[in-house]
């Protein structure tokens, strides 16, 4: 994964709370392989009307939105389903960072695993950032090392779990990290099985059990 240090690019204001993963990518697109590019599914049903025409006023349909690397939203961003496809849609659209006062827990860890920075700010700072951007994408700088966001004259701090910060700064992947612990895992597993002998799974034959 590509490490993140500084993102200095246009940011899209999305002045909505509870933007859940069902909205980020509606379920019907999830049968597609990733190779088709998930960017065009991002917020599909907010972006288009029922006949499939783009809503001109929706921020992602703004001509500058294509260049945006950061999204600023209200609270509880990415709540709901664990679908990592929601993150693929953001990443394939070009986003590297989402700024919000709170995130769905699973969404944040999915984001970090795909090199997308979930930057948590206070509700007041989110409002200030949204106000500074207004209705159009605007230049915004995210400094991951300093944990600061700057738009024009406004500068606010953000928080992120330290391990996630390290992973993003270095572009690390969990599977690479876990490889160093292969021996410890094997030792643990042997001891664990000895302590919990009833957990060894022997699949029973399929049969109809009529129970409540």
């Amino acid at each position: 994964m590509e490490p993140i240090k500084i993102i200095d690019a246009p940011a899209c204001p999305l002045a909505l709370a509870n933007v859940d993963t069902d909205q980020l990518i509606p379920a019907r697109f999830m049968k597609e392989p990733r190779s088709v590019g998930y960017g065009r599914f991002l917020l599909h049903d907010l972006r288009h009307d029922e006949s499939g025409d783009p809503h001109e006023t929706f921020i992602l349909n703004h001509p500058e939105a294509e260049k945006a690397r950061t999204l600023v939203a209200r609270r509880n961003f990415g709540a709901g389903s664990s679908r990592e496809a929601a993150v693929y849609a953001l990443v394939d659209h070009g986003f590297r960072c989402v700024i919000a006062p709170s995130f769905g827990d699973i969404f944040s860890s999915n984001a970090v695993n795909n090199g997308l920075l979930p930057a948590t700010v206070s509700e007041e700072d989110a409002e200030a950032l949204l106000a500074a951007l207004g209705d159009t994408p605007g230049q915004l700088r995210v400094d991951l090392e300093a944990q600061r966001i700057t738009v024009g004259g406004l500068s606010v701090g953000f928080t992120i779990t330290p391990t996630w910060r390290t992973k993003l700064l270095n572009g690390w992947d969990d599977i690479d990290m876990t490889r160093q612990y292969t021996d410890a895992i094997q030792r643990f597993a042997a001891d664990y099985t000895r302590r919990h002998p009833w957990l060894d799974v022997t699949p029973p034959q399929p049969e109809i059990i009529s129970r409540g």
Binding site: V87, S109, D174, I175, I185, A189
Partner: peptide, 23 residues
């Protein structure tokens, strides 16, 4: 018992383990 994303599913398939911070 908790839900995980696709990258984590791949990690569990490959290692039967998962990195988590204690909530």
């Amino acid at each position: 018992a908790f839900g995980i994303g696709a990258s984590e599913v791949a990690h569990v398939l490959a290692t039967q383990t998962l990195w988590q911070s204690r909530p």
